[in-house]
Amino acid sequence: MTRRTAVKLALVGLTGAAVGVGSIPLIRSIPATAPRRFRHFSDDDAALLIEICEQIIPGDDLPGATETGAIHFIDRQLGGRHRKHQPTYHRGLESFRQTCTQVYGRAFHELAPVQKIELLQAVETGRVPKELWPDVSAPAFFNVVLAHTMQSFYGSPRHGGNRGYASYRMLGLDQPVIAGQNRYPKA
């Protein structure tokens, strides 16, 4: 943390925030050759959300949120079951962007890995400049993104996330279950 950042975070009550969650994640960006068009996100918002989701479920030796399609899950559900959260995303992402700029003077994707986690912890706990979150509170935004990222990563691939049942493989769950092959019924 630079001295300048420390001063700014101190101003919003974020002093001494320990970076306890996670190690350094791999930085994954959208491949430049495959620009995505999303139904509910501008390309800029999508890129930012992908970065946030990747902090929540980082890729390591096994795939994380980006690689398993979290953005596709969320984009699809914002037109379906999670329709009511459209404003949470659109306003929350804008507040998040402004918070990042004000505190770090840089865009989220330009932050060091520890800074990304530090900022997300501040958003999670509401230790952010309140005036930058007029429409949706920072913790409310974080909790929605967290829940949807988890749904994406652990739910069925038919909704756009959990590509290749990556999370099931991570947990050692055979999928698909094939009767007579990977099932061991006991009487």
């Binding site: 969650v21 996670g22 994640p25 902090q55 479920i57 390591d60 096994l62 994380g64 991570m170 947990l171």
Partner: peptide, 17 residues
């Protein structure tokens, strides 16, 4: 317990089973 991040993922791996 960790709700997210690498620590969450490790927790899942360690304790799901």
């Amino acid at each position: 317990a960790p709700r997210w991040g690498k620590a969450h993922k490790d927790w899942q791996r360690n304790f799901y089973r």
